[in-house]
Amino acid sequence: MKTVAVFVGFCLVLVFVWERVDVVRIGYEIEQLKRDKTALERQRDELRVKVSALSASDRIAKLATEKLGMSLPQQGQIIVVQSRPSDVHPSGVVPVGLKVARNYVPSGRL
């Protein structure tokens, strides 16, 4: 009986110690995960700033004109075609106004 009581007591002490150690271990894991989360959030924010900088109108316009040879349509090169009552589809949907931009080249090519 005595031996059983000592064994049970020993087991209880073991469980208690194991629980304390596990709490500390999980604490370290939580901290590590928190650090990972912070690092990922930091990386996400860096990428958001980068995306925003890369999509700046200033930069896109520069790339379009300098690298791709594009230019802003001059007066008369944008023709807006408005829908007429006869353009209404049988379903009753009015077509959206169409914008046509074309770069006039003297040789006649569009």
Binding site: L72, Q75, I78, I79, V80, Q82, G97, G108
Partner: peptide, 24 residues
């Protein structure tokens, strides 16, 4: 004004006839 109205998709006061838009 010209660029912003175009960007906002504001239709012009003076409509252009459809025939004028046919490609040459």
């Amino acid at each position: 004004g010209e660029q912003v109205l175009s960007y906002l998709g504001v239709p012009p006061n003076e409509p252009v006839m459809l025939a004028m838009t046919s490609p040459r």
